[in-house]
Nucleic acid binder design. Structure first.
Lengths: 120, 120
DNA sequence: TGTAGCCATCGCAATATTACGATTAATTAA
DNA sequence: TTAATTAATCGTAATATTGCGATGGCTACA
């Protein structure tokens, strides 16, 4: 008779494993992931260059539906890169300066500590 | 009798839409996406700080299986951040300096052109 | 009190990502 | 030649992401 064999760690499949990585690594990956879509890059560029701060004009700027844009905005808000203020009937989004600097510095750290050593 | 109604743009579902975005935006998003996983951040940090260049020791460094690590390495190779040289029975991976600088500069560009204007 | 506009959320569908074990291809060592 | 080692790839499973239309909750204005 065959023994019962349980092989899987189901909870680890398809899901990003964060155990075994440093907090810094997980954080940096999270920020990068948020930047990992053209629409979200476009939104940030738009907000960064705009004089006043912008509401749902973002939707008009992007080749995506309102609901999709809303989702992207949510993701950027979740990692703290932007924040939204309700302004009458509409919502005003802008870059969260503090976190913006934080992400900037984190990425800087990643890229700075590499000095080329002729290998390969 | 009801008309036939075709509603969908199937090819646009679940797939990142790149039409309507600039080349720069798509590229930057691609790089960021590659950075969007703790394992890949860890790999890059490891390669950046290692004196000699490393092969499959990366697998031992990470809390992931060999095949999974191989997949992550592949993704980093696809965006050009690392390159691998066959070295006898094993493979030597290291950072691709040229693209490393390119990605660094691209991200720098994104973050630099924002000067805080008290909004919201 | 409607009613119109803005935007978040829900529900769905299609695809992508993550992870693993098993297998395969290539190279070195015996 | 054979066996062992290394690393890529295949196949599979679970979950995440992306996208849309439809719905619903607000606020402002008539």
């Amino acid at each position: 008779m065959q023994p019962f064999i349980v092989k899987l760690r189901l909870k680890d499949m398809g899901l990003t494993k964060t155990e075994g990585f440093t907090k810094t690594q997980v954080a940096l990956a999270g920020y990068s992931k948020a930047l990992g879509h053209p629409a979200r890059i476009a939104i940030l560029q738009f907000l960064a260059t705009q004089k006043g701060c912008i509401c749902g004009d973002i939707v008009n700027e992007l080749p995506l539906s309102q609901s999709t844009v809303s989702q992207h905005l949510k993701e950027l808000k979740n990692v703290g890169l932007i924040k939204g203020n309700v302004e009458g009937p509409s919502v005003c989004y802008c870059i969260d300066e503090k976190n913006w600097q934080l992400v900037k510095n984190s990425l800087n750290d990643l890229f700075k500590n590499f000095d080329p050593k002729n290998c390969c």
